[in-house]
């Protein structure tokens, strides 16, 4: 069968795009808060104010004539990441892992020159990667160092951890591993592997690539069964704190583990995708429903994390959560 029956999907609590847009995003995410997360510089500033670790900002460029400054800014650094401030879906991100004389090396080993970087920056400034094609700014960040725990689980890139935070409670998590097919990017639709992570333990639950179950990393052949993410509580707390930081009820927090600096937030997303359900082999709806039945939201992120760990761990209570009815089905 190529198509699932809608009845079955509903009974598993799988949330579809229409339901996500209608029942989660437009209900819990006030539009005026979007700029906080759509503008990565603002997010970074917010996070720093809240005491959350973020990758170090090496420089920003706002105008086309700033492109000439690029050489000066990049000069002292061997490794850096160039990002559009208002990019989405990982678009327009350029990672340089090595700088040798005039050549800059991408994680794949391809060498490019300064003019190529300048053109890339100029494209970003013109709004090529931004939402709606509006003029954009460029930020240059320090490169995140791969934590050794992920060595063997990643190919030419840094894995990131996506945690869905619903009204302040982390409800589902996924580790995104770069592969050869994804060209070093952590986007599932480009071929990255999504590993569902148990909220309670930080252990791997199930992994998919291109929507199909995989048992080991396609490039390194390392199995996922013994994968446990370190600093798991810290990661959950960072994600949960994003609720106070942004006010968004339904958000996706992208975190990474840096070898030297530990957990840090790299990006927030007001419209997180739904592939996380495939990676977790579970639907979001029951978890959303649990949080929606809560009368009050605990103001302490740590308490929320404890609640979530108890509620949403499939490893600890495999038969829980049969509540399916989310408020999305209710009239507003």
């Amino acid at each position: 069968m190529f198509l699932a029956s809608p009845k079955k999907l509903r009974s598993f609590g799988i949330i579809g795009m229409n339901q996500r847009n209608f029942g989660l995003i437009s209900r819990y995410n006030p539009r005026h808060l979007y700029p906080l997360v759509d503008d990565k510089l603002k997010t970074k500033l917010l996070a720093q104010q809240a005491g959350i670790t973020v990758p170090k900002l090496l420089g920003t460029l706002h105008y086309q004539h700033d492109v000439k400054l690029l050489k000066e800014i990049l000069g002292p650094y061997n490794q850096f990441v160039i990002k559009p401030v208002k990019g989405s879906g990982g678009k327009g991100i350029l990672v340089i892992v090595e700088h040798d004389h005039n050549l800059y090396f991408k994680p794949s080993g391809d060498a490019i020159q300064l003019v190529d970087i300048e053109r890339h920056v100029s494209n970003i400034l013109s709004g090529l990667h931004s939402l709606g094609g509006k003029p954009d700014s460029v930020m240059i960040e320090s490169l995140i160092q791969l934590d050794p725990v992920f060595s063997g689980y990643s190919y030419e890139g840094i894995p990131d951890i996506r945690i869905i935070v619903f009204r302040g409670y982390p409800i589902m998590a996924m580790l995104r591993l770069t592969t050869h097919a994804s060209d070093g990017k952590a986007n599932l639709h480009q071929g990255a592997v999504g590993v569902g992570i148990d909220i309670g333990t930080g252990g791997a639950l199930h992994a998919v690539q291109f929507g199909e179950t995989v048992l080991y990393h396609p490039d390194t052949r390392k199995t996922f069964s013994e994968l446990f993410i370190p600093h798991w509580d810290k990661l959950l707390q960072l994600a949960a704190a994003c609720y106070e930081m942004t006010g968004l009820g339904y958000l996706g927090a992208d975190l990474v583990l840096d070898r030297d600096q530990g957990p840090m937030i790299i990006e927030l997303n007001a419209r997180p995708g739904l592939s996380i359900q495939v990676a977790n082999y579970a639907g979001l709806a029951p978890r959303v429903a649990v949080i929606e039945t809560l009368k009050t939201i605990d103001p302490d992120p740590q308490a929320r994390v404890i609640f979530s760990k108890k509620q949403f761990s499939t490893a600890l209570n495999p038969h829980a959560l049969r509540l399916q009815h989310t408020r999305c089905d209710d009239p507003r």
Binding site: P6, L9, G16, M17, N18, Q19, T213
Partner: peptide, 17 residues
């Protein structure tokens, strides 16, 4: 707010759950 046809394909592996 129901599923899109393409999602029935996208989530089809979940049906074996």
């Amino acid at each position: 707010t129901g599923y899109r046809l393409s999602e029935l394909y996208r989530f089809h592996s979940l049906e074996r759950r």
